[in-house]
């Protein structure tokens, strides 16, 4: 799981162009939106694309993202349980 969390952080940094952020800067339990990384609604859409492209997870209900993107831990857990690739 630790390896997957690191990979996920690297993917997020790359896809969201978080140039000044390193994987170790992202707290596994901190909220991804609002405070913390300060992501916005376009970033949320990019994360939905990332899940589909890299893990084959198609979110039928985009509103569910709010729950899934609560933190890196929650997101990694969701991916682990639902990935198709």
């Amino acid at each position: 799981m630790e390896e997957m969390i690191l990979k996920l952080k690297q993917e997020i940094i790359e896809v969201l162009n978080l140039e000044d952020v390193k994987p170790e800067d992202i707290d596994n339990d901190a909220p991804l939106f609002g405070e913390g990384l300060g992501l916005d609604s376009i970033d949320a859409l990019e994360l939905i694309v990332l899940m589909e492209k890299n893990y084959g997870i198609k979110l039928q209900d985009p509103a569910k993202g709010k729950e899934i993107f609560k933190s890196i831990n929650v997101m990694a857990d969701y991916i682990q349980k639902n990935r198709t690739r």
Binding site: L45, E46, E52
Partner: peptide, 9 residues
Amino acid sequence: YYPSPALFV
């Protein structure tokens, strides 16, 4: 086919 929202805006 993965349209990028961040590029689209």
